[in-house]
Design a protein around this nucleic acid. Structure first.
Lengths: 344, 344
DNA sequence: CTTTAGCACTCATTTGATAAGAGTGCTAAT
DNA sequence: ATTAGCACTCTTATCAAATGAGTGCTAAAG
């Protein structure tokens, strides 16, 4: 679909104008704002052509034009210029991350907060998840009779630990033995593989400790599930109400219903391309209910491993250039923040 | 403010009718629905009296009556009959808690979910917090050279642990000594007291380990802060949009703005009475922006210690009887769930 | 062949006037 | 003390007309 230069300019003008005002764009307003050197009539002719190809459409006969899904796609792929964050915004981000965040959950929160303040769209964020972490060592440490600590150490340096209650006749030696066997089975496997491994194997070798081992494995499962659970954080629910498309309560309800179901958001995050910022426009999002929205996603990673995904959801009339820049920037910030192991 | 029986009946009718329909209540509709044995004209006379005392008011001259804040208060204090959960609802709750929740965060989530499904108001929940937990023992366990586990055991049986990186020339003996000193200082204190204790005291005794002890204390602070942080969970944001008062977008924005600020919610939760379900109506909520809302709160506890607060926020036209029952019931469920120490 | 001025036409939105309806307050009768 | 009856008030719905933004088309000009 090759467009001549002027058609591109007209399309760009329509998209950008519509993004700014949320109103249908008229030929006259384009002639006024953009110096294309032609009259509204000429622009009207171009518009008629663009409409025929399906890049724009008319809400009703006597209205201006609005970009179609295809039009936005063309704009994003071919016309859009990359946006830059202002120094002011850079400063905002640094300010948010300034108070040396030390806890994982805080870093996530800060990111969420920053993106929320930067965009007025829905922000959601998954991870970090550890399922590809490799188990280095399991330790079982008795804290007191009847109580032990299960410590799971990963190659990446992460340590997960949980206390557990045991029947009090289990001795330290018993625990040492169990630890030995567990390490033999699980060492070198990823967390994902461990949860997939049929636990019965281990179980058989440790029939002597049937009850205890049952308990430990159960706890281990809980710990791993807990840690592997791709946590989902959501923000910006009030910010997005500023968008004019949500001055109708029915639209708000739709949106809220959509985001209420975590699967929907997870689905969007799953489609993120590991190597670049992903833009899904309207029906490109798999979910039927999302046909009016657009989503922007990018992954963040630590040491080459994908740790999670950051996403934005907004109306199709989204400031793509800006949103993409913010998402890209913040995934970088997040990746960096997680790479310093100065937090616990 | 003593009202004769019939005035009470009329007020009750107005409140209940308005709660149900969200519309001003007319004298005729009361005469029809409630069998007071009098004509609308009589009821009108009573209404005029009630209005004079300030228990109800008229949105405009030719409209029915609406309860005032004072009117709701009277209703809640004197007229309201306690509601009961239906067997169906009891089943719903049990279903939600059925899949043997094992992780603290899950119990919270389940509670939130249950209340959300039961009420159509905003649900928020703080805690659990541990600041009154008494420290039983600190352990520092070396995992490998340069890596140790800080274990904090509380009297209640809770165990918090975090891994930390240390400089690799710290020996096991060093750690044992540090552990000893820390225990000497902190054992028997509540977490709150520990964070208040001037850390310098300890610091002085352990000058030998200046760097290490600094690091450990820092981590301990993080752990305690993390655990003591009164987490705030929020749900029902989409459910509340069902309430007719939020068919106007402006109202929605107000509400969202209000709940966006955690302080506002915390403030409400702080006002909870430890011994009974608390109802704050309109301006009784301290925050100015909340003058249109009502809040219902109740604490949950474990072994006599308050662990957190569950709250509901909705329009003043709230089904108080029902909401109070739900809140009371769910704080009980929550207290029980947390008392079984079958979770990790 | 391209561009554009001019004009008729369409359709959403605003405005104003009118009617309908709900509900009250008051008065006088019961 | 109660209530039927009625005038009065104020909101909401309805409809027609006016307004105006914007297009599409045609014919003239470049």
């Amino acid at each position: 679909m090759a467009l001549d230069l002027r058609k591109q300019q007209v399309l760009e003008a329509i998209v950008e104008c519509h993004i700014e005002t949320a109103e249908p764009v008229s030929s006259r307003s384009i002639a006024r704002k953009y110096n294309l050197g032609v009259s509204p009539a000429t622009i009207r002719n171009e518009m008629a052509d663009l409409e025929e190809i399906g890049l724009i459409r008319q809400p009703h006969t006597s209205a201006g034009r609005v970009p179609s899904q295809k039009g936005y796609r063309y704009y994003v792929d071919k016309l859009m210029k990359k946006a830059e964050l202002t120094p002011r915004e850079e400063r905002l981000i640094r300010a948010i991350f300034a108070k040396r965040v030390k806890v994982l959950a805080d870093i996530i929160q800060c990111t969420l907060k920053a993106v929320t303040q930067l965009t007025d769209y829905l922000v959601f964020l998954s991870g970090p998840y550890f399922e590809n972490d490799v188990l280095k060592k399991i330790k079982i440490i008795q804290l007191m009779p009847g109580k032990a600590l299960l410590v799971i150490m990963a190659e990446t340096g992460w340590v997960h630990s949980k206390a557990m209650d045991l029947s009090s006749d289990i001795t330290v030696d018993d625990l040492a033995y169990i630890e030995l066997v567990l390490n033999r089975y699980f060492q070198g496997l990823t967390f994902k593989q461990i949860t997939r491994t049929v636990l019965k194997d281990v179980y058989n070798e440790l029939t002597r400790y049937r009850k205890t081992i049952n308990h430990i494995l159960e706890i281990m499962e809980v710990v791993l599930q807990e840690e592997m659970k791709e946590n989902l954080y959501l923000g910006g629910t009030n910010r997005i109400l500023k968008q004019p498309e949500y001055s109708d309560i029915e639209e708000v309800r739709n949106l809220m219903n959509f985001i209420e179901k975590e699967e929907n958001l997870r689905m969007i995050l799953q489609d993120a391309d590991p190597y670049r910022v992903t833009v899904k426009i309207g029906e490109e999002i798999k979910s039927e209910q999302a046909s009016k929205y657009s989503a922007i996603t990018a992954v963040y990673n630590v040491g080459g491993n994908i740790m999670g995904v950051l996403g934005l959801l907004g109306p199709m009339r989204m400031d793509y250039a800006r949103a993409m820049t913010v998402v890209e920037h913040m995934t970088n910030v997040l990746s960096e923040a997680l790479s310093e192991d100065k937090f616990y």
